[in-house]
Amino acid sequence: MVPEGKVEVEKTVRATLGDVLGLTPERVASFDDETPLFGALPELDSMAVAGLLTELEDRLGILIDDDDIDGETLETFGALTRFASAKALQ
């Protein structure tokens, strides 16, 4: 798929994180590939993970099998975006 698809997915992941976790736009705008998520953001507890996955499914029109999710998928913003891109742009 075209590279702009990836930019679009990253934008969606960023917005979804902001909405689900109630983060300020400035804070999510500062996220880069290396920004740690799970374990580093107190807002991202297991309940929030469930909401985040479901919201990503709705917004990207993808289906996520919970077995595909492990600690690494949510380790950094970059890892989560790569995971979402792989699902959305396959």
Binding site: D19, V20, L21, G22, E43, D45, M47, A48, G51, L52, T54, E55, R59
Partner: peptide, 22 residues
């Protein structure tokens, strides 16, 4: 609440997903 769906849109945050009520 977001475009790309057939329904009319009112833009806004998905407050129902938020871990803390907002």
């Amino acid at each position: 609440i977001q475009s790309g769906q057939p329904d009319p849109v009112i833009e806004g945050p998905a407050l129902w997903r938020r871990s803390e009520p907002g």
